[in-house]
């Protein structure tokens, strides 16, 4: 009895401490969400953030260094670089979103099938996944682009298709882990049909790690889309895509460093933010 009496107040204290304790704010995580929120705001309503146009230049305004009027300078036909970055957000973000959606749905579907099917199906799918992984990502993307043709959407699909294999591998491992759990066996035992149990119990419980990986892939996709845009396979020139901005600014890099440095910083900030958020998601799941 005495031990019980002794332990009671401490548990009460503990629970009170837990009640008072707020979720600990991690400054870098908050900053990361802010960066992503700002990028999404840029993409949805670019005109709110800049008075300048993203595509039409002003005569006599060419290649001006950063100033109070043009925070990040102007390019070779007098367009505001900051406006170009803001108007370019929609291309990079929607491209990355398409890529992650393609990779996530394709990979999760493959992983779910492989992880829950008989040995033959599993082996066949995993050998295909091995094959996809054996070709370097950029070359696989280029092979798909050569078939689909150039353009923002095609580049996004190519980047997404490249990530299907790694999504499938991760998702399969998770599905196999979840399938062994007691509650799945219980669901089967209480008369659940195979597909039903798969859909209601196995899939939702295997998604946590995969979602963290999706956040990581969002950053990877932004980088890959910028690279393909830089190589000239993405959006055609007047469109302000971040990779393309750097490719165009390259011609003037002897005199105008701001044309290449700032769009690059935009890419880096978004990628860093996505990576940080992915880390937090992984810690939670």
């Amino acid at each position: 009895m005495t031990t019980l009496d002794l332990s009671k107040p401490t548990t009460a204290l503990k629970s009170r401490v837990q009640l008072v304790k707020w979720p600990r704010l991690e400054p870098t995580l908050v900053l990361s969400w802010l960066v992503i929120a700002l990028a999404i705001a840029f993409a949805l309503a670019p005109q709110l953030f800049t008075p300048h146009s993203g595509t039409i230049g002003l005569a006599g305004n060419q290649l001006k260094p950063p100033s109070a009027e043009h925070w990040l300078g102007t390019d070779e036909i007098g367009r505001d670089v900051f406006a170009r970055i803001i108007y370019g957000a929609i291309n990079s973000l929607s491209g990355a979103l398409i890529a992650v959606t393609v990779g996530f749905t394709g990979g999760t579907a493959l992983g779910l099938i492989a992880g829950s099917s008989r040995r033959v199906v599993d082996d066949t799918i995993m050998r295909l996944v091995d094959t996809l992984l054996s070709v370097p990502g950029l070359l696989l993307q280029l092979s798909i682009i050569i078939i689909l043709g150039f353009g923002t959407t095609n580049v996004a699909i190519a980047v997404g298709a490249t990530s299907v294999a790694s999504f499938a591998r991760l998702s399969r491992a998770e599905v196999i882990r979840v399938r062994r759990a007691d509650y799945v066996e219980a669901a089967f035992g209480s008369g659940g049909r195979f597909l039903n149990v798969l859909w209601r119990h196995v899939l939702p419980n295997s998604l946590g790690t995969v979602l963290a990986y999706a956040a990581l892939q969002f950053g990877v996709a932004i980088l890959a889309i910028a690279t393909l845009g830089f190589l000239g396979y993405g959006a055609p020139p007047p469109i302000p895509e971040w990779g393309l901005l750097i490719a165009e600014g390259r011609k003037y890099m002897t005199t105008s460093w701001w044309l290449t440095v700032f769009p690059g910083l935009a890419v880096i900030l978004v990628v860093l933010a996505a990576n940080r958020i992915s880390l937090a998601l992984r810690a939670r799941s």
Partner: peptide, 9 residues
């Protein structure tokens, strides 16, 4: 997080 082409430039 740095794009390769950007590092080069």
């Amino acid at each position: 997080a740095l794009p390769v082409f950007w590092i080069g430039i």
